[in-house]
Design a protein around this nucleic acid. Sequence first.
DNA 1: CGTCACCTACCGATCTACAGGTAGGTGTGC
DNA 2: GCACACCTACCTGTAGATCGGTAGGTGACG
Lengths: 190, 190
Amino acid sequence: MVRTRSEERRAEILRAALEVIAERGYRGATLGSVAERVGLTQQGLLHYFPTKEALLVAVLEERDRWDTSGGRDREGWRLDLLDSLVEYNAMRPGIVQTFSALLGESVTDGHPAREFFTERYAQVRASMADVLRLEFGERLPGGLTPERAAPLLTAVMDGLQYQWLLDPAAVDMPGAFRDFLRLLRGDAEE
Amino acid sequence: MVRTRSEERRAEILRAALEVIAERGYRGATLGSVAERVGLTQQGLLHYFPTKEALLVAVLEERDRWDTSGGRDREGWRLDLLDSLVEYNAMRPGIVQTFSALLGESVTDGHPAREFFTERYAQVRASMADVLRLEFGERLPGGLTPERAAPLLTAVMDGLQYQWLLDPAAVDMPGAFRDFLRLLRGDAEE
DNA sequence: CGTCACCTACCGATCTACAGGTAGGTGTGC
DNA sequence: GCACACCTACCTGTAGATCGGTAGGTGACG
């Protein structure tokens, strides 16, 4: 059980890092402030993660593990699961903020998360296309192919998150997302 | 013409700042690197903009001026103008990157651009709703009201930009945006 | 059973590198 | 001769990282 202690510590640190990155982004986050949150010195933290970048990588890896296990089924998502994913996100502004901040930073030159996001979006688009194909076949009601609709679906999720983070009262994120799904489905509401 | 000289300099500085922010974000940008790009020392730059934040504010103000004059008509955009706006953006990755990086950073606590973006998005949504109403009236073909569709339109633009910045070859931004407009218009393609 | 070798989990001091900002100039042109 | 457009010289703060410890534990062997 001594082994566990160490991994517990690492998990604590990752959680704290997530918070600090949400608050200040990766560039703005300092090792010291992460360390402080778990009752360590900066040097103590470096014992667990040898560099700042290693800490970031660990955060990203955990995210990867999370959303390729918890959320995704053997055969991928279903469309209504996406819906509840967005609702889930709406209850976790912290996580959303962390990854929105990282995404924003990652488009800058030489950012350590850039490759991660590039690959991740390729996967996400592919996965979205699968979901859509499963649901609608080769043509969605609106006339698009799954491959053409997938980037839009992804874009809507991200774009809504930014608007929602900036002003939660101004945007009903889950509602807006459902609106978009209705558009894809081609059923008029009312 | 001496007056002009000074304003020329300021304009040069703003352009350089835009570049540097695109490359490293606001937090990552340094006054020194902006100054260097226009052949000044860091302190020489501070002669024109007394603080780093003042420089950022000037950048944001210029953006504001730009996209409430150049792009927008007395009565707002037309839907097909949006289309060419996206095409225009696709030719200017630098600008897009600057403001995508800033948007990402701005969701972090106490970021100096946060208020700017919050207000800007409120305006943009309102403006989008106007465009849609002008084009379709109170109900879009897909069944949405202009107010419900506006956040989606905005989200698609932003979200596509991130995907495109991360991997320009993977996403046809103008094409995808046109796909979305078709969805709103309700006309199946082919 | 004790002690020697070694590991883990840290901390303090310190180094290096900038970063933003201030104070007080100097030169040039009107 | 004075205002503007800068520069040199600094100061202060902070960030990431290294170095060299220390304290506690574990295991092996004589």
